[in-house]
Design a protein around this nucleic acid. Structure first.
Lengths: 221, 221
DNA sequence: CGGGACTTTGAAACCCTTCAATGCCAGTGG
DNA sequence: CCACTGGCATTGAAGGGTTTCAAAGTCCCG
């Protein structure tokens, strides 16, 4: 698990669920590994603050991001006894709740309400994976990037309507969408130039024309 | 649910699970809808024979297949009260077990073993979705098709080693991989010409050189 | 034997990856 | 304070891959 940590050591407050009574919070820097592929799956996790990427390694050595977790999202659930992916913090000050799996499963066994809660968590992971498949299945890179931005704008807390702060780098977006980082950059530039989005810095995006984004533009230049 | 059906009406036998006592079997022709996007999620399903595709519709009208279910695979589990995808049989004589969700959930509430079983089912869906993401994330179409073939060869019952019978059409493969059907055909032809695979008809494939397939060839012509 | 769905192949236009180089920014150490 | 460094982002150019439109070819079932 994590090396550097400054967990509070106190039980998580959460949303009043009995599950949260089991949790301990840990804090991570950027790009720290929270759990690693092949390790014993001893814990479940929930993002409290910041963000986490779930990564798998392909046989060709390239990285595929199979999930971007934002506050409220769970991860660490696996079918086998080992994690089949690694999870890394994407931002400084990323905080996660850690749920010892043994205890959580035992609680689920004794309390059907908790068992349903766990099931609901797992199902929401499925929903997110399906959404990612839908995005990756789009034809052109610009369509993928557009869909990604819209999905992020729905998932991120809406400080200002249509304004989002990307929690990840262009490289992360690239590995999430299965395209090259250069193409991500070119697509964003293209959307910017044709006025569908605008930037403040590199991470803050304003979605000017959500409807046009949804329709999926096909030109990148 | 399905219109045309000839279910046996008898309780499923299955693998001796208490869950299977709830099941009723239904038989479907090819391309019949088993459950539809937006419908009330009243049932869970398991493929007994044949195959099922899970489909989602994109805003651009194109179809994305978010899962190919083979015998033993579950589907119909959803986060909300409605199916967020449709499921259709891909082969004649497709048989599925139908589990009324209310009853299955109630059984899960009263029996922790069943609850864990259900959780394991959901987690295996996640594993499959991750595998699909991994395949779709590969760079070239030929790599995607190669990975698809290898995945199928692992999942399909191994009648003869390295011999598989594709349960789906080129169009289905295309919508599964997020590429065009023509490109699927060209990739398969290319793999055939360079001797990595060979065909008997259009659906029966022999994987001649699995290792080379895994490495991911980059040429399609 | 014919129709329809599925599959394959061709050609042109376009898109994406790759390699390369530059620009940008923040943190570091002199 | 400032140059320096390293990571991230942007842009360019060339080559190759994919989509799209089109047209045969093939297979299966009625």
């Amino acid at each position: 698990m994590a090396i550097d940590q400054s967990g509070t050591g106190t039980a998580g407050s959460g949303q009043g669920s009995r599950l949260d009574a089991l949790a301990v919070r840990l804090k991570f820097h950027r790009n720290q590994e929270i759990c690693g592929q092949g390790q014993r799956a001893a814990n479940w996790y929930r993002v409290v603050r910041g963000g986490v990427r779930r990564c798998m390694l392909r046989s060709d050595g390239k990285r595929q991001i199979v999930g971007l977790l934002l506050p409220g999202d769970f991860f660490g659930l696996t079918a086998g006894e080992e994690y089949d992916y690694s999870a890394e913090s994407v931002a400084e000050e990323t905080v996660v709740s850690v749920y010892p799996r043994r205890l959580a499963e035992a609680l689920g066994d004794s309390d059907p309400t908790v068992a349903r809660e766990i099931r609901a968590l797992v199902l929401s992971v499925i929903t997110q994976l399906q959404t990612q498949l839908l995005i990756m299945g789009r034809t052109t890179a610009t369509e993928k990037v557009s869909s990604f931005l819209l999905d992020m704008s729905h998932r991120l807390p809406n400080n200002a309507p249509g304004r989002i702060t990307l929690p990840v780098s262009r490289y992360d977006i690239a590995d999430y969408l299965g395209i090259s980082a250069e193409t991500v950059s070119r697509s964003l530039s293209g959307l910017n130039q044709r006025g569908l989005i605008s930037f403040k810095g590199t991470r803050q995006v304003r979605i000017v024309n959500p409807h046009a984004l949804e329709d999926g533009y096909r030109a990148a230049a």
